Each structure stands twice: as structure tokens, then as C-alpha cells.
Amino acid sequence: MNTKRILAAAAVAAIAAGGGVLAGHWVRGGDVSEAGEAPVAQSAVAQLWSAAVTNADGKPQSLALYKGRPMVVNFWASWCGPCVEEMPTLAKLHDEYSKKGIQFVGLGVDSGKNVKTFLQKVPVDYPIYVTGFGGADLARAFGNNAGGLPFTVVIDAKGNVRATKLGEIRADELKRTLDAL
């Protein structure tokens, strides 16, 4: 377990230093088929709706209840410095954009115990779910091949991936993406 954390921390550090291909840049849409859908992204969204997640107390939850709503999905972990740094920004943006119908969701790629302890210290006003380390596979489905955190995905109301970002978000950049939904 400690080895996984050390490797994950090293990956985050490499990404923060610019080592990731996508680090620090929003990636828009994706390769679009004639039907107007990005096949890989559509598959990832389907995986999101069926993902096995729990709340911080370990009770099974379903992300499918968010179908049909524009969403910001943020993959994070309690041991990830940049993840913790961006949470206040995400909370402020959630407050602003929830009035416009945009749902923010945090997916903790961490243990339930760590997420629960973190949320007791740092309250967050948008839903936080626990994916465990399997959340890294879900993030990879959205194109996070580096496996780094934080990783943010913007999905429109039709279930299309509009943008992804590996690394800490900047409010102005995320606002531009959300205003275009």
C-alpha cells in the first residue's frame, strides 16, 4: 500500500513538474465520429454511470443519478497536494455554477477511511464519492494514461466529454469551459 502511494506521489510530482503530456492543458472534446460522438469518451461516460462508488461512510452509491446534467468530475486523493490545493477553487466554482445546473462531483481515488478523515477536516459542499484505487482505471478511460492526479473531466448534459485536464485546475480556464456548455 505504501509503495502504491509513493509511486502515485512520484507520478503527481512528475506531472506537476510538466512531465505529463497533458499536464497543465485542457484537452477539448476528442476525435469525433460521423455520429458526432467520441467513441472512447462515450465508453468512459458509460463506465462512469456504472462505476462502483461509495459515499465516505462506505454506502454504495450510483453516479447514474447525474445523467442528463452537465458535470465536472474531479479525480483526487487525500494524499495528493495539488488535489487538496484546488478543492477550495472547485468549491467556489460549484457554488457559482450549481445555480446554472452544473453538478460538481469529486471521486476519491483513495480509501474510504482517508476520504472520511479528510472531509472531517476540510468540508466540501459538493458530493464526494470513493472509488478506491480502481478510480485510476476510470480516469484512464477518460484519457488519463499517465494515471496522475488531480484529473478533471467536463461532461455536457448529453453525456459528451467536453474537456479534460490533468493537473491542478485554474478557475479562469474552467470557467471558460463551463460558460461554453
Results as ranks from 00 to 15, higher is better:
N114M: 01
G81Q: 12
G159K: 00
K116R: 12
A141V: 00
E85Q: 13
P88Y: 03
V122M: 09
V122L: 04
A139D: 05
T54G: 15
K99L: 12
L65K: 15
V72R: 07
D172S: 14
L65T: 13
R162E: 10
D137F: 11
Y126Q: 02
T164Q: 11
S50N: 14
E168R: 13
G143I: 06
C83F: 08
G134A: 15
S50V: 09
V72L: 06
N114C: 02
T89C: 04
G132K: 02
T54A: 14
G147P: 06
P60A: 14
D57S: 15
V105M: 09
V73N: 03
C80I: 09
E168T: 06
H94L: 06
E96Q: 10
E86L: 07
L93V: 01
V72K: 07
I155Q: 00
F75P: 10
T152L: 07
M87D: 01
A91S: 09
A171R: 12
D125G: 11
R69L: 11
V124L: 06
P88R: 00
L65Q: 15
V130L: 05
K165S: 03
P82N: 03
C80R: 08
V161T: 12
F133V: 13
G134Q: 14
P123N: 04
V130S: 04
I128D: 08
P82Y: 02
V115F: 01
G159W: 00
Y66H: 15
D95L: 12
V105Q: 04
A139N: 05
L48F: 13
A91Y: 00
D57A: 15
L107T: 03
Y66L: 15
V72E: 05
V84K: 07
V153K: 09
D125A: 13
F118A: 05
P150K: 10
F151I: 07
Y97R: 05
D172Q: 12
K59F: 11
K121H: 10
P60G: 11
T164W: 11
L138H: 08
L93A: 03
F118E: 03
T131C: 10
L119F: 02
V153D: 05
I102K: 06
Y126N: 01
D137G: 13
N160T: 06
F133H: 15
G58F: 13
M71G: 07
V153Y: 09
A64W: 09
K67L: 03
G106R: 01
D172F: 09
K100N: 07
R69V: 02
D137N: 13
N55M: 08
F133N: 15
N160P: 06
K113A: 15
N160H: 15
D137A: 14
L149Y: 08
M87V: 02
L107Q: 08
L107I: 12
D95E: 14
S111L: 02
C80D: 10
A56T: 01
S78V: 03
W79N: 04
V84N: 08
G143A: 12
L166P: 10
V161I: 11
L48N: 08
G147M: 04
G58R: 11
Y97F: 13
A52P: 11
L149E: 01
M87Q: 06
M71K: 10
L107P: 09
N144E: 06
D95Y: 11
A136N: 11
V109R: 00
V154L: 07
V153G: 09
A51G: 13
G147R: 05
C83D: 08
T131W: 04
K99R: 14
V73A: 04
L63R: 06
A146T: 07
W79D: 05
P88T: 00
T152G: 05
